[in-house]
Design a protein around this nucleic acid. Structure first.
Lengths: 171, 171
DNA sequence: TCATTTGTTTTGATCTGCTCAAGAAAGTGG
DNA sequence: CCACTTTCTTGAGCAGATCAAAACAAATGA
C-alpha cells in the first residue's frame, strides 16, 4: 500500500483526497528527497509549481500525513521530516553532527523492543526507534581531525548540541 | 552516577558547575515530577524561588543537560521534557491522547535494536526507543465510549494528531 | 452544460518553544 | 574580604508550525 511507484493520482483518490496540482507537486518533491523538511519540500515545489505558498505545503503535508500517504518523523532538535515510505514501520539513523537521516530496516531478527513489559499499564501500539550516530561523511571529517573535508551541511547545527543524551547503549 | 539521592550541591560541583539557587530549585522541581516540560519546571521553580525568569530555567536546564545531570527527551509533537534519571539509557512510553510519559526499562534481556546492520555506513552510538500507546486513564476513557471520566489533561492536545504514524509494529 | 456542494488553497495573523545579547548580580578561590 | 569568573535578569527576536476567513477549484447531480 502507498507504493510510490503507483500513480500518485490513484493513491490520492483511493485515500479519499482530491487530486490537485499542489499535492502532486509535493509528492513529486518527496520522491527524490526522502526525509525532507517542510521547508525543503516547499523549495522543491516552488520550482515546478511557482506560486505555491508555504502554508499550502504545510496543509498538503498534513493532509497526506493524515491520509497515510506520507509519514512524518520528528528527530529531536530539528524540524519535522516527511518521507514516502509508509507501509513498513522502519526506523531511522540520524547523524548527530550534520543531521542527515537514513533509513534502517529494523534488523534484529525478531520484533525487538516492541513488547515492553506493559510497564505502567500503557497499551503500546507503536514503537519508534531512532539511532543516533555519525554519518560516513562526518565520520571521515572527524577522523581527519576536524580540518579535512567538511560534511555537506552546516556543522554548527542545533542538532549537535541537543542530541546524544547517553552514550552507552543499555539493554 | 548522577544519583538524585546524593546532595545536589555535591553533584553540581563535581560536574564543574557552580551551586546557585536557581539550579538547586530546578533540581528540586524535577524530583517530584519526572518528565517535566520546561514550562512546568518553571512553574514549580517559581513557587519556591520567586523572581526566577523563564530564561533562567531554560539556561539552567541546558547547563544541567550539558553536564549530564539531567536528561532531555523530545517526544514528537511536544515540547522537550527533562528527567533526572541519567545513568541508564532507559526508554519511554508516551500516551498518544493525553501526552503523559512513563519510563520503560528496556525489557528484552539483551541490547535489542541497538545494532542495526550498519545500514548506510553510519556509526551508531545511541538508540532511542519511544513507545506510543494509551495510558491507563485514556484507555478507560476510550472503553467508556468517550463520555466517561475524561483523563487528567486536555484531550485536544496537539500530540494526538501528530503521532501514531504506523500501527503495526515491524521487526 | 450549468449550478451546487464540498473540499483546497491563499492570505495574513498568531502562537509556542526556544535562543541570543547585554548588563547586573552572585558564587568561588585566593 | 577582594577580584575574577560564571550565572542570572531583562528584553528582543527567530523558526517552525498552526489557525481563521475568504477566494477558488474540483467532483456531483440536474
Amino acid at each position: 500500500m502507498t507504493d510510490p511507484t503507483v500513480d500518485p493520482r490513484e493513491a490520492l483518490r483511493s485515500a479519499g483526497l482530491r487530486v490537485t496540482e499542489p499535492r502532486l507537486a509535493v509528492l513529486r518533491a518527496l520522491e527524490p528527497a526522502p526525509h525532507a523538511a517542510a521547508e525543503q519540500v516547499f523549495a522543491r515545489v516552488a520550482l515546478d509549481l511557482p506560486g505555491t505558498s508555504v502554508q499550502a505545503v504545510y496543509g498538503v503535508l498534513n493532509a497526506l500525513t493524515g491520509a497515510g500517504l506520507v509519514r512524518r518523523i520528528e528527530p529531536a532538535g530539528s524540524a519535522a521530516l516527511y518521507e514516502l515510505r509508509t507501509g513498513d514501520n522502519h526506523h531511522h539513523v540520524v547523524c548527530g553532527v550534520c543531521g542527515s537521516v537514513a533509513d534502517v530496516d529494523c534488523v534484529v531478527g525478531h520484533a525487538p523492543c516492541l513488547t515492553p513489559s506493559h510497564d505502567s499499564g500503557y497499551l503500546v501500539q507503536t514503537a519508534e526507534v531512532t539511532f543516533w550516530g555519525l554519518c560516513p561523511a562526518c565520520r571521515a571529517a572527524e577522523a581527519d581531525g576536524a580540518e579535512g573535508d567538511e560534511p555537506t551541511r552546516a556543522s554548527s547545527s542545533p542538532v549537535a548540541a541537543a542530541t546524544p543524551v547517553a552514550t552507552g547503549p543499555t539493554a
